[in-house]
Design a binder for these strands. Structure first.
Length: 262
DNA sequence: TGTGATGTTGAATG
DNA sequence: GCATTCAACATCAC
């Protein structure tokens, strides 16, 4: 499910399928996932247009239209694109679909309707308004350290907040904490600078590797690197066991003993 | 049958 | 202004 690397995979999929194809018709089946526009208006705005570029920042993907406006795709927890030509392949929870002149369709499949679709007139103004942080793979160490400085709260809460850094989700946060041997509930003001730098490095390494693997939530390899995320599983020291708890309001796995609480 | 799930937001509280 | 907690969103899988 979509955190930064998964959204990047959606972006690649979108580029391979929808880019530079004129939209003959747009059909909205369900208004609910649109935030700043009605389904009817979305149909009108998108019909006859062509996507000419894409941009991703954290978990947000934007499709640039040939009139220099953008469509924001946010995939919530369960959404996905599907490109198909046979109507029998229509995804079960398709909320809207672009029908291209070649007869193929790009459907937006979204079971839980947690997605957020917006029509954006001015991208820079929009990103500034929602105060979206710098992409987790783009952010520099200096900016990361500056953001984290003078903050209290938990490490996990910080990493999950998209206004700080855009792109980290529950799984990658747990993974980063595990690899850094730090408890996700550690207080930011107690973590030494050296450790913060390590967190930054590991975060980017993990995201980059995941992105290179092009993960897709329906097709994660069975030996994927977060497989330790199970209760009772052993850490590399052979004795610390993984426990399940809640940090920053989210289900959290960590290896007690292996991961130090600051 | 009940419960929780890879996300975000807004309201309420401290 | 911050940090935290909670509810809401809607569906599926176990």
């Amino acid at each position: 499910m979509p955190e930064l690397p998964e959204v990047n995979t959606f972006k690649i999929y979108f580029e391979k399928t929808a880019l530079r194809q004129r939209i003959k018709k747009t059909v909205v089946h369900d208004d609910k996932i649109f935030r700043n526009i009605s389904g009817g208006d979305f149909e009108k705005k998108l019909t006859g247009r062509t996507f000419i570029d894409t941009y991703r920042r954290g978990k947000y993907m934007f499709g640039k239209l040939d009139n220099n406006k953008y469509v924001q795709f946010h995939f919530g927890m369960t959404c996905d694109f599907k490109y198909y030509s046979d109507i029998a392949d229509k995804p079960r929870h398709e909320r809207f679909v672009f029908i291209f002149e070649n007869g193929f369709r790009l459907g937006f499949d979204c079971p839980r309707k947690f997605a957020r679709i917006n029509y954006i007139e001015n991208l820079d103004e929009y990103i500034a308004r929602i105060n979206l942080g710098t992409d987790a793979l783009e952010i520099s160490e200096a900016e990361f350290l500056k953001k984290i400085k003078n903050k209290k709260g938990t490490l996990k809460g910080f990493l999950l907040n998209q206004k700080n850094i855009a792109g980290m989700g529950n799984l990658y946060v747990d993974e980063t904490c595990y690899q850094c041997r730090i408890h996700p509930a550690s207080r930011l003001d107690k973590i030494p600078l050296k450790k913060k730098k390590e967190i930054f490095d590991k975060m980017q390494n993990i995201l980059q590797r995941a992105l290179d693997e092009r993960p897709h939530y329906k097709g994660y390899p069975p030996d994927w690197f977060w497989q330790w995320r199970e209760e009772g599983k052993l850490a590399p020291d052979g004795k610390s066991k993984v426990e399940k708890t809640e940090v920053a309001g989210r289900t959290t796995y960590f290896a007690k003993g292996w991961q130090r609480l600051y």
